[in-house]
Simulated assay, not measured.
Amino acid sequence: MHPDIPRRHELRACLWLAVLVTVLHPASAHASLFHGETLDAIANGISWVAIVIAPIIGIAIFWLVHILPKKIAEKKKHPQTKAIQCLCLLSLCFGGLLWPLAWLWAYSKPVLHKLAYGTDVDETIGHHGEAKEEKSEIRAAARARRRTRTAGQQQGRAVVMGDWKYDVISVGYPGPVLRGCPKAEPRNLAPGWVGFDFEAAFERPVKIINDAAMQALGSYDGGTMLFLGLGTGLGSALIVDGCVHAMELAHLPYKRGSYEDYVGIRGLEKYGKKKWRRLVADVVEILMDALRPEEVVLGGGNAKKLKELPLHCRAGENADAFRGGFRLWEKRVTSGHLRIRIA
């Protein structure tokens, strides 16, 4: 054997031993790239972020998400925006459990509101979800109109009223009326009714009720009476023992539309007089079964197109509206001395 071979084996063994010692020898460990005060400062910053800043951001995001239904309702001019906003606030107290209900409510169609008031939008909400006029601004504008009466207003009043002498004014409004004020703009007239100060304009006391209710009041003789006005649409009012209830029966569902679609002017033009008369008789029968009035008064311009009146019905006259306007200011108007109340 060559004398250098044992030496080569020894040298190789020494190298392997050195590598093994190097690998197994414990090196000094470092937990971070930073040391001392720098490490403490970074730890303090992370603590502030986790304890203060992150919760604030989370609360802000939670709040923004929770007011989304209110923003959606304002954009869609939902008439129940205030109620949706209240539900959003309640949801905050219950940890967000009510938020899905508020979201669904904002996207739903207010069917019952439309039946009650004849509209499914809130006309007081602007295009950007802000109120067109706040209540304080309306009151301020009314005060300003009283203080600064323009010559144009006085001249306009003189043209309309002429030399009439009057003490009070009654207004029959073709739309929903709430607490003596128009609730929504009329569908078939120019806007400007909602928020208008009639007493300031006429300088007289003013009472406003639905036009069908006013004609019903003029037709009333006591008991329970249902009034149906056959005109452009279908006006309706119910009087029970002197209490006048203006109603929006025209928008209730009937067949493939609403009562107004069949017995209003559109139904008359679409179906002709013969079928329209049968539809009127059918609608009167349905409403009598539902409301149980002692009698029904059929008024409006198209009532004269009926050849025969349905059972328990009598025809009203346009003059009844004038009589109803006078009765608004009387305390007792019937033979039974009933006190009139506007619901």
Rank of each mutant, 00 (worst) to 15 (best):
R7K: 13
R7Q: 13
R7I: 14
R7N: 11
H9C: 11
W16Y: 08
V19K: 09
H25R: 07
P26W: 04
S28R: 12
I46A: 14
W48M: 01
V49W: 13
A54W: 00
P55Y: 08
L64H: 03
K77E: 06
Q80V: 02
C88P: 10
W103G: 14
W105R: 01
A116Y: 06
H127Y: 07
E130N: 08
E134K: 15
I138R: 12
A140S: 06
A140I: 01
Q153I: 13
G156Q: 12
A158F: 09
V160K: 10
Y173W: 00
P174H: 07
P186A: 07
L189W: 03
L189F: 11
W193R: 01
G195I: 05
F196H: 05
P205L: 00
D211V: 06
G233T: 08
G235R: 00
S236D: 05
I239L: 11
I239K: 04
D241K: 12
H251F: 10
L252C: 08
I265S: 10
G267Y: 03
E269H: 07
W276L: 04
R278L: 10
L279Q: 10
V284Q: 02
E285D: 12
I286W: 11
A290F: 07
G299S: 04
A303M: 06
L309W: 02
F326S: 08
W329H: 12
K331P: 06
V333W: 10
S335N: 08
S335K: 14
L338F: 08
A343R: 13
